[in-house]
Amino acid sequence: MFMRIDHVGIACHNLEEKIAFFERTFDLTVVAREINEEQGVKEAMLHIADGDGGASYIQLLEPLSPDTPVGRFLAKRGEGVHHVAFGVPDVARALEEIGGKGIRLLDEKPRHGSMGSSIAFLHPKDVGGMLTELVQAPDH
C-alpha cells in the first residue's frame, strides 16, 4: 500500500527562519510554497531525494492563527514533527482498506494537499500516537 515516505511535516513558529535553517544546514531546496486556508497553514516543501516510488520532502508548517490544528499543536507541544505522510497510489482506495481494518479516519474522502496532491489523515490514536497522512501525487 505504501510506496514511500512522502514527507515529514514539521510545525514551526516562523516559516522563513526554519526554511533558512534547513537550506543552510542540510542543503535542501524549497520546491513549493503554499497557503492552505482549509488547513490553516503557510507551508514550504523542501526536496530531499527522488526514489522509485517518487520524491521525498520535508514539509514546514506555520499556522495562520493560534486556533488552527498546527497552532494548537505548537501551543501544546512546541516546534517539531507534526505528522508523517506516506505516498500511496490511490488515496480513496487506501482509506477504504485502512478504514475496513478498524482504523478511524479523520478524512472520509480525499482533499486538496500540497503541490496538487490528494490527501487524507488517519486518527493518531489508532496509529500508535502518530498523525498519519496519506498522499497521492497529482500525476497518479
Rank of each mutant, 00 (worst) to 15 (best):
residue 1 M to D: 05
residue 1 M to Y: 06
residue 2 F to G: 10
residue 2 F to A: 13
residue 2 F to Q: 11
residue 3 M to D: 06
residue 5 I to F: 06
residue 5 I to C: 08
residue 7 H to F: 10
residue 12 C to N: 13
residue 15 L to Y: 01
residue 18 K to I: 10
residue 20 A to C: 08
residue 20 A to P: 01
residue 21 F to Q: 08
residue 21 F to E: 02
residue 23 E to S: 13
residue 25 T to M: 13
residue 25 T to Q: 09
residue 26 F to R: 12
residue 26 F to H: 14
residue 26 F to E: 13
residue 30 V to R: 10
residue 30 V to D: 05
residue 31 V to M: 04
residue 32 A to C: 12
residue 33 R to C: 11
residue 33 R to N: 11
residue 34 E to C: 04
residue 37 E to Q: 10
residue 37 E to N: 07
residue 37 E to T: 06
residue 39 Q to V: 07
residue 40 G to F: 02
residue 40 G to N: 06
residue 41 V to R: 05
residue 41 V to I: 14
residue 42 K to W: 14
residue 42 K to I: 14
residue 42 K to S: 14
residue 42 K to L: 15
residue 43 E to G: 11
residue 44 A to C: 11
residue 44 A to E: 07
residue 45 M to C: 13
residue 46 L to C: 11
residue 46 L to R: 00
residue 47 H to A: 14
residue 48 I to H: 08
residue 49 A to T: 07
residue 49 A to S: 10
residue 50 D to S: 11
residue 51 G to I: 03
residue 52 D to Y: 12
residue 52 D to A: 13
residue 54 G to K: 04
residue 55 A to E: 09
residue 55 A to N: 05
residue 55 A to R: 05
residue 55 A to H: 05
residue 56 S to E: 11
residue 57 Y to P: 00
residue 60 L to N: 05
residue 60 L to K: 02
residue 62 E to H: 04
residue 62 E to Y: 08
residue 62 E to P: 03
residue 63 P to Q: 00
residue 64 L to F: 07
residue 64 L to I: 12
residue 67 D to E: 14
residue 68 T to F: 02
residue 69 P to S: 09
residue 69 P to G: 08
residue 72 R to Q: 10
residue 72 R to G: 00
residue 73 F to A: 09
residue 74 L to E: 00
residue 75 A to R: 12
residue 77 R to Y: 06
residue 79 E to K: 07
residue 80 G to R: 03
residue 80 G to N: 00
residue 81 V to E: 05
residue 83 H to R: 05
residue 83 H to T: 01
residue 83 H to W: 04
residue 84 V to W: 02
residue 84 V to S: 08
residue 85 A to V: 02
residue 85 A to I: 03
residue 86 F to I: 07
residue 87 G to L: 13
residue 87 G to T: 15
residue 89 P to C: 08
residue 90 D to S: 11
residue 91 V to C: 08
residue 92 A to C: 00
residue 93 R to S: 00
residue 93 R to L: 04
residue 93 R to A: 03
residue 94 A to G: 00
residue 94 A to D: 01
residue 95 L to Y: 03
residue 96 E to N: 12
residue 97 E to T: 14
residue 97 E to Q: 13
residue 98 I to E: 01
residue 98 I to C: 00
residue 101 K to A: 12
residue 102 G to A: 10
residue 102 G to K: 13
residue 104 R to T: 09
residue 104 R to E: 11
residue 105 L to E: 01
residue 106 L to D: 04
residue 107 D to S: 13
residue 107 D to A: 12
residue 109 K to A: 12
residue 109 K to V: 11
residue 111 R to K: 15
residue 112 H to S: 14
residue 113 G to I: 00
residue 114 S to P: 14
residue 114 S to H: 15
residue 114 S to T: 14
residue 116 G to L: 13
residue 117 S to M: 00
residue 118 S to T: 09
residue 118 S to W: 12
residue 119 I to W: 05
residue 121 F to R: 00
residue 122 L to T: 01
residue 124 P to Y: 07
residue 124 P to T: 07
residue 124 P to K: 06
residue 126 D to W: 08
residue 126 D to L: 07
residue 127 V to H: 03
residue 129 G to Y: 03
residue 129 G to K: 02
residue 131 L to N: 14
residue 132 T to L: 01
residue 133 E to H: 15
residue 133 E to K: 15
residue 134 L to N: 03
residue 134 L to M: 04
residue 137 A to T: 06
residue 138 P to E: 05
residue 138 P to W: 08
residue 138 P to A: 10
